[in-house]
Amino acid sequence: MSGDPADEQLVRQAQGGSRAAFDMLVLKYQRRVERLLSRSVRDPADVADLCQETFLAAYRALPGFRGESAFYTWLYRIAVNIAKRHRARQRPLESLEDGEGTFGTDAAPSDDATPEALLANRQLVRGLDEAVQALAEDQRRALLLREVDGLSYDEIADLMDCPPGTVRSRIFRARESLSARLRPLLEGRGGRRW
């Protein structure tokens, strides 16, 4: 088994019938799975349901887990498949219908923020979210795993089942695409690249 030795021990115990060991894995990874699911599912109630469905599917499939990848890599793939099935069942929705997207807009404004600055920030966040949603799926996943989850290129390569060079290329292309789409919004802010 590759990955965290503590996970390896918990997985072996859970495969041996220990519910407490599996509960520890759930506690360890629940927030990460919720964060992953919330990138493609907007309704918090659906995110909670799909998270529960992910762990239920993992529990049922655990006897067949051979440890060829890290436990979280395996769990990640289950969650992604469940999210894809959920999206396939849903009709397309406006991605920013509720005003919140991948990066949210609920950050507390500073005391000295002007209405114009608040509007510019909101437009920038909305533009960034729209640009991220417009990326090809493989580019979006790689970029979010790197920038939001803080995973290394090797970890992302393992999760996406591709070489690290491919991950680097996808992230580079995603950043270039975002830069081109956000350039008009950034011109009023000094044109800085993110």
Rank of each mutant, 00 (worst) to 15 (best):
L151M: 12
L145C: 01
G3D: 08
G17S: 05
S179I: 03
C162D: 00
A88Q: 15
A142S: 12
F172C: 04
E137T: 15
R173N: 12
A58N: 01
R146D: 03
A6N: 03
S40K: 12
G67C: 02
L37Q: 03
L145T: 01
D106A: 14
L10A: 11
P5H: 03
E176K: 15
R39K: 13
A58T: 01
D158A: 14
E176P: 02
S40P: 00
H86W: 15
R122L: 11
E34I: 06
W74L: 11
M160Y: 00
R85L: 03
R126L: 12
A58R: 00
G127N: 04
P115M: 11
G3N: 05
G191Y: 01
G150N: 07
E94S: 12
D43Y: 11
V41W: 09
A120G: 00
E53Q: 13
Q139N: 11
R141W: 08
G104E: 07
L124I: 11
R141N: 10
E97D: 08
F71G: 07
G188P: 01
G16S: 12
A79T: 03
F71V: 04
L56Q: 03
G188L: 04
R170E: 06
F172E: 07
Q52E: 12
L144K: 02
V167G: 02
L182V: 10
Q52Y: 02
Q9C: 08
L128F: 10
Q15C: 09
R77F: 00
F71S: 07
P92C: 02
R42E: 13
E187W: 01
T105W: 01
T114S: 15
R77L: 02
I78A: 08
L182P: 09
A142L: 09
L96D: 05
E34T: 11
A20D: 15
R42Q: 15
I82T: 09
V148Y: 01
R126C: 03
I171H: 09
E187G: 08
